[in-house]
Design a binder for these strands. Sequence first.
DNA 1: AATCAATTAGAAAGCGCTTTCTTATTTTTG
DNA 2: CAAAAATAAGAAAGCGCTTTCTAATTGATT
Lengths: 333, 333
Amino acid sequence: MPTIYQVAERAGVSLSTVSRVLNGKASVNKVLKERVEKAVKELNYRPNSVARSLANNRTDSVGVLVPELNAPFFGDLMQAVESTLRAADKHVIISVGRNCLETEKDAVEFLISRNCDALIMHAEALPDEYLLELNQSKLPVALVNRRVEGLAEACTSLDNEKGGYLATRHLLELGHKDIAYISGPAGKSDAMLRLEGHKRALSEAGLPINPQLIFNGDYSEDDGKIGLLELMARDVPFTALVCANDWMASGAISCARDLGMSLPQDLSIVGFDDVVFAHHVFPRLTTVSNPIAEMAEMSAKYILNKVYGQANNVQLYFEPSLVVRESTVKHEG
Amino acid sequence: MPTIYQVAERAGVSLSTVSRVLNGKASVNKVLKERVEKAVKELNYRPNSVARSLANNRTDSVGVLVPELNAPFFGDLMQAVESTLRAADKHVIISVGRNCLETEKDAVEFLISRNCDALIMHAEALPDEYLLELNQSKLPVALVNRRVEGLAEACTSLDNEKGGYLATRHLLELGHKDIAYISGPAGKSDAMLRLEGHKRALSEAGLPINPQLIFNGDYSEDDGKIGLLELMARDVPFTALVCANDWMASGAISCARDLGMSLPQDLSIVGFDDVVFAHHVFPRLTTVSNPIAEMAEMSAKYILNKVYGQANNVQLYFEPSLVVRESTVKHEG
DNA sequence: AATCAATTAGAAAGCGCTTTCTTATTTTTG
DNA sequence: CAAAAATAAGAAAGCGCTTTCTAATTGATT
């Protein structure tokens, strides 16, 4: 590996000059510049990014924290972040939080120890204060799909309440009146907002909110199944079901089928997120789209602006929209 | 951020001594050692990994190349690599190849420029020679799910031929005699081997190999659909279909359903890979399991051995196994 | 033509570590 | 007990860059 010294030597200039043409910040005599460029090419010189980082205290890398690597939702997120950042020649260090406070803290520590210039996170367990502190203490933080008081400009978020509202409104418009709901975990604000939206839709339609028709799930496929069984055991009839994400919807669907129900006739089901497999399930899932890829891209652009002096437009708020497929059907009666 | 100097000063020793206790390689007087440790704690000192990398020419990071980030198969791969490497305090820099030669080369260049200590790749387009050269030139390479002549010990691979064999044998055992096959792209050896296995099963059963029953797909969901349509248009009857991966199987299933077929009665379908959504599709997919996570883990361990002096056992060859679900059924007649 | 300002190139310091080389101290040995 | 060997701490060089500081050259100004 040639160093900047060899380039300087070959070009017959000092290494300062080489550095200057490499970084293009200061003006360099045209002749010398060409000599340097020639030498660079001939030696196939590539600057050592570690040395550069040490000298200018910046690694051109941004840490990304996600709960899991093998879920389509976060796959979309990472895909968007990676391509946006890579286009700017920044690299991405990915770390996994597993939905667990300790692991998330650990992951952040890890990313910090790697001298990332910034962090882009889909943080599940870390409390707001921690994130605030992180951002103040030193390294800029962007939060995907989460709102934190005092960090507004660093947060991209979805109108989850509206999403919940859209899902239920769709069912109401199809004539359903008895609509069950499997929510996400009570600790997560998106889950709570989606549920809020559901309730608002019911209220607007003049329908009562029956707690017997609400099951508290944890966003896992299993809880879709467990939720459906539990709801049915409660013996309050319902003709439609909203699930707060697609995983639970998928679990509920396969459970319903195991129960011998025929879908969507016996039960209309709506999911949330529109993850990639939503159209693999049968009947193809009606769901609420979550523009996670765009949110992630915006988070990346925010960091590009904040840390690397770019000037992209960033959109922070996103609207969900309904994607009607085949898992919902008119209620006859 | 405190540096090693402040630690040395506070502990009243030289920075060499601090470095020595930090790295634990040379022996240090017990008293001094304790003083250093105390100072480290009090200052909450964390070594600067960039400086360390510059000094010892090693970044403790390994580059990972995958074709895409948002596919379950590669999600499993990354998950395994990340957790294995992170447990050894190495970090992972992920780069995307998009199944395209140019992009893959680019991605590798990128990872090299980031001074990775090694590369773990699921390379699709890069030719064997390129990989060999890479490995020789400087940085150790581990290949997941691919065999390269001359790089045997660096390759984990699946017995794809056997996988294809198992899929078709399963259908034969169910009494099917007319078995169609949608293969992966001709350029990929795993695709070719799976097809070989299919043919071997047919031959062993004394059945002819009818090219009219083979469609050349590209592993995409769309090609599952296109393949099925094309095969049916050829007017050679078949009662079962093997698809060389789950995506194409899923495409074929949803196409079959759109055609009004009832599954699995009208057509038994087998997939390959057992990706996470295989049980979301309906009927739940019978498929051949691909232990990609284990392969990936082994690739990571190989690198841990080769570059970081660990001594894990590594398994290089993996056997697929059949996962029978509900998309295949006995052929009556 | 002489002075001053503006450019531009080179020298050298510094980023925060590791590691070799020295030197001082302790331990071993005949 | 003196000399040789082993041990451990410090000094300093070096990893490959960026950037400040200094010096030299050129151009502008009166």
